[in-house]
Amino acid sequence: MAAAKRAALLLVLCLYTAFAAGPFVWAAMLSLRTTTEIHRNHFAPPNPAHWDKFAEAWFTSNYGVYFTNSTQVVVSAVVILTLVGSMAAHCLARYRFRLNRLIYFVLFSTIIFPPQITIISLFQILVQYGLYNSKLGLTLVYVAIQLPLTIYILESFFARIPSDLFDAARIDGYSDWEIFWRVSLPIALPAVATTVILNFILLWNEFLYAVVLITEEANRTLPLGIQRFIGDTQEDVGMIATGLMIAIIPVVVIYAFFSERLIQGMTAGAVK
């Protein structure tokens, strides 16, 4: 009976793994094949495997530049989001002050606006401040669009930290600033890791704001770079797949690095 149960569980796990990993494996296979080979048979294994396509994509198809741009924009945005978001969340969760809940509500209510509504205004603002078509401009926009969700996730976690811990740290002689860095932030690390992964993946794949706010080749991010290989009449599917794999690798690395913390964040109940 136990063996049958185990076998059933194993089957479910195998099916789920195939479902989750299938598209990833398929994209990986496509990335090692040329467009002609792919058109001949969509699902054939890469034989021979064209590893040289990665070098070609990186150097001749400009993926190196797109990758660097994406890294600069997304890493900067995630760092700012994590710092500003956790400080704001700490303040909103920890301190009693007038309009605390109103500020929280206003911040959070911006989540309801779809990007299509804000994008024109953002475009105009960036043009006005000379930030249009710049990586700095795109970074600031990314910070602005992701900050409410970041604060929302972190605030609920910070609010669960017992206030006795802050009182104990105050009696131990620490200032509010030190308490944030030495008590709040380390305790909230699982939640912070959750927002790092979430923001990184969302912004790494972000297309709409990038396509509107960046037009110069030198400032394009990876999703825009991949789009370049989709023409009006034909698509270089092979090169798109290679570009996708280059884009996916950092996400996988970030996820592998932070996943333990992410799980802690999702399952965290008691912080006592």
Binding site: D164, L165, D167, R170, V183, P186, I187
Partner: peptide, 20 residues
């Protein structure tokens, strides 16, 4: 005078141990 300069120590109901 701030708490830190009163030379007092406090034991809390919840213990208030730093979990990390």
């Amino acid at each position: 005078v701030p708490a830190k300069d009163r030379d007092i120590a406090m034991v809390f109901q919840s213990y208030a141990l730093y979990p990390h």
